[in-house]
Design a protein around this nucleic acid. Sequence first.
DNA 1: TTGTACGCGTTATCAC
DNA 2: GTGATAACGCGTACAA
Lengths: 333, 333
Amino acid sequence: MERVTMADVAKEAGVSKSTVSQFLNKRFEYMGEDTRKRIQEAIALLGYQPNYVARSLKQKRTSMIGIIVANIMHRFSTEVSHAIEEYCYGEDIQAIVCNADDDPAKEKKYIEMLMAKQVDGLIIFPTAQNIELYDHMIKAGYPVVFMDRKAGDLNLPRIVADNIGSAYEAVKHFIENGHERISIVTQELTISPRRERLQGYKDCLNEHGIVLHEDFIIHEPIEHIQEKLEKMFSLNAPPTAVLAGNDRVFLELLKFMKKKQFMAPRDFSLIVFDNIPFADVATPAVSTISQPAAEMGKKAAELLLKQIQKEAVEPKEYEYPCELVVRETSGKL
Amino acid sequence: MERVTMADVAKEAGVSKSTVSQFLNKRFEYMGEDTRKRIQEAIALLGYQPNYVARSLKQKRTSMIGIIVANIMHRFSTEVSHAIEEYCYGEDIQAIVCNADDDPAKEKKYIEMLMAKQVDGLIIFPTAQNIELYDHMIKAGYPVVFMDRKAGDLNLPRIVADNIGSAYEAVKHFIENGHERISIVTQELTISPRRERLQGYKDCLNEHGIVLHEDFIIHEPIEHIQEKLEKMFSLNAPPTAVLAGNDRVFLELLKFMKKKQFMAPRDFSLIVFDNIPFADVATPAVSTISQPAAEMGKKAAELLLKQIQKEAVEPKEYEYPCELVVRETSGKL
DNA sequence: TTGTACGCGTTATCAC
DNA sequence: GTGATAACGCGTACAA
């Protein structure tokens, strides 16, 4: 594990460190043909590899960015992260993924740690609980892009999906297929996408003159969803259509359906808000609202790298439409 | 983005840099009570945060490790990575995940890049195509742990699943349920787990006096699997049971089943070698061979961190048994 | 074209 | 208890 340094190469080639440095930075104009060859040979002989840590210290950039996902167990997070990494790979940037696990304390720790590690910028799925910290970073001019969620009234680029409109479309699809008893199931309303999806749901029912039924609206922590479903489907007139707020909720719904021997669309129509892995090949194939995760990830990466390169970026909301993919679980009443 | 350095803190507190350094390393014996307080205040006032890059340069360690997964699209990879990260988080180590995408060239590039970034060690799902490079790292004493696959005859710890035994058990289960026409479908036999799973399959049939039927053995690139399945199920006597070699193959199988309107276990029994997300709540629930991904990841992390701390680790194979989880897709003939 | 000297922010080693 | 000073490995003026 003896590391060979630039000095070793210089000695081997019989030149000075700076000449080796010039060589590494491909500034060949500043050296003779034979010097160049000698350096090249010395590097090969010693198996020299530049030390990026030292380089980073000097250049004040690490060529690394951080991604702080709220919860890595959501398929959407991994798809977005993957897209970001892919884009960064092409730009010779390294992306570090950290999982905040929906825990604001953990999020804070990661943000501070990544900044201490001098990563060049951050893409964050904010828990929305660390407003002061976000604010501080932005005021300090640190490159940041928010993903998926809105948080506070901060002056930075935010990539979001059109949650209201998409939920609206899904419910409209239900209505057009004859449903009136329509339910939405989601987790606690702590983050903006969940609130917005509920909003779209309500808007659509209202505009179609369907009375909101509080029993059909579930917004609970994952561990309470089973009992709420149990209760809802014990009603005299249970829902005939369900919009699952995300993939985790869908999992709970599947559990429940298995227990009750329910099938979609036989027992109720179902649309899931999220990209889920086997949606198209499952039987029955699952109707989904698909977010353009790859596109959103790529855009976030672009905006972040622009900021890092001191290019101007508009600190606005970049909203992406989702696609309602009707498959087999959502049918006519 | 003006970074405040130790020198700023020292000046503010009216002490020298070294004293501040002592403070940061909690060596309070070497300073007076009031000095300590002054430094503390200066740090708070300036919002000072230590620069890890500079620290790493000096300490020759970055508190980062790299994970090079062969293909991030396999559920097993993400589960293992997640377990590694979790363990590392507790040890204040940062894990960087890189996706080699089954491409030896990309794997090589990532290994070199991470070493240049001075990460303290590497956990690799080897493509098994860069033997010289692996060999070089190990000879140089660089901490490395191999995961999932065997490659070359190298002197390092390897975490593997008992692929032969598990495939054997799955096939035995088929036989005990009356099946004789049993198929195995897997990708190209380029890496050890696939070869071993096929081996276990063959061993079991042999020991039970069932003649191997080459038409029932598919080992092809993903893009050719559909046509091979098509051919196999057009046989006069098609298989009544199928062992899917991994989750990607399972996806192909689902596609095929959907096209043909096949259902398991109605049309054939099915066991999937791999952890798949909705296995237990799907209808029908999918029988699987479940690898202890979390355990394996944790063990890999432990072994790597031990090496990094210069503790001795046995450079042997650590083999983990898998669990055959019989659910609904595998039934009696 | 090449070499020298210094800076980057931190830590370790000795003096004081 | 505290403070100079020298590493660490690389980049970069600037001098030669």
